Simulated scan of single mutants.
Amino acid sequence: MTESARPKAFWPRQMIPPTPESFKELARDGGERLAAVSLAQIPAIPAGAKIHDNGCGSGAATTVIMASLPPEVAASISITGTDISRGAVDSYRARAASSSWPAEGLVMDADSLSFPDETFTHSFGNAMIFVGPRNNGIDAVKEMHRTLKPGGTLLLNCFGHNNVLEPIRKASRETRAGGILPEWDSFEQWTDPSLIASIVEAGGFEKEAIKVIPCHMFVNIGNYERATTLVWSMRGMPSGGWREEDEEKWDEAVDIVRRELQQTEEFRMLNDGTAEVKYPVIVVTATK
């Protein structure tokens, strides 16, 4: 089939286009909040620390690290942010320059780090382990273990539950022929704390040195109508792509997402029309 004859993807006219800006709007400050609740589980970062922000994105974890440090400590540390996405690293570098971070950004695969053995005192993977590395993250953890100094600290996290998954599934079942479910599955396997603990152990850390800590964070998702339209636009697409029936039943599907999310115990509507959602979080720390 020639390129000109290839069927064009169908996009419902009501959907918000999936751009980096719309995904950033969907995430809000969730990356920073996730980093903050995770960082609180380890001792304060000391002077002279050499930190690896693995899967750095645009710098959520580095932002929180820098905000947590007194000026004299901040002036003595170094941070290396790495990400497989060149666009993310470009954003990280720009943010580092504008914020005067003691940080550099490098394009690098988490499964194959180019650093020498025993380079870092701290290795952080904020919202990293469940979104990119192959082999269920074991290879990435092996690399984090290799590049940590003896006595160094590993910090990983994942979500213990995703509040919007079931509302999206219900909207899919009730508005689509055959009840076709969304392609997005919220990385559901990661909600089991024993999984990430077993991956850290398989990556080379001693079982006795691993701590699994259940936590939670609150995220204000903004204007509720806008936020739920974003959720359905970014997460509701069925396997195989959007269909014309999705456009026809768009309003019905979004209304279901709104209704069902409001009924979860983690949800709270605020007086200003925005909504706050509580997210369970699993934090794992380990010492080499």
Rank of each mutant, 00 (worst) to 15 (best):
T82E: 01
V212G: 07
M108E: 05
I79P: 07
N157K: 07
G132T: 08
G132F: 11
E201L: 13
Q262I: 03
T153H: 10
D246A: 07
R134T: 15
G152D: 02
V37C: 09
N163Q: 14
N126R: 06
S98P: 10
Y224R: 07
L154P: 04
T229F: 04
E260C: 00
L26D: 01
K207A: 14
G236I: 00
R134K: 13
E225F: 13
L165D: 04
P43E: 01
P167W: 02
L156T: 07
S98Q: 12
T285N: 01
Q262S: 12
G204A: 04
A75E: 12
K211Q: 14
G204N: 03
E252P: 12
G125N: 10
S239A: 14
Q41S: 11
K207I: 10
D53C: 06
S4D: 13
T63M: 13
A60M: 00
I256D: 03
F159A: 11
S58Q: 14
P18G: 08
S85E: 02
A74G: 10
S85P: 07
V277S: 15
I79Q: 12
L154K: 03
S114D: 12
N163P: 15
G105M: 09
T63P: 09
Q14V: 08
E25F: 06
P238E: 05
P12K: 02
G203S: 01
T2I: 11
R6W: 08
V131F: 10
G236S: 02
L270R: 11
F10D: 09
D29N: 09
W242A: 00
L154T: 01
E143G: 00
G57W: 00
S58W: 10
T191S: 11
S85N: 04
Y224W: 11
I84F: 15
R259P: 04
L155R: 01
L26F: 05
D90S: 06
A140K: 03
L69R: 02
I65L: 07
G152P: 01
L106V: 14
R86K: 12
E183W: 11
N157P: 10
F130S: 15
T80D: 09
L181I: 03
T264C: 00
Q263E: 05
D90K: 10
V107E: 13
N157G: 03
E225T: 15
D246H: 04
V164W: 14
M15A: 12
R134Y: 14
M144D: 03
G132V: 13
G273A: 09
P46N: 03
A44G: 08
E25Y: 06
G31A: 07
E206V: 09
T153C: 11
R243Q: 15
G160E: 01
E201Y: 14
R243A: 06
S85Q: 12
S85R: 03
V284M: 04
S4E: 11
A275Y: 09
M108H: 07
S38F: 02
P133E: 02
W250G: 11
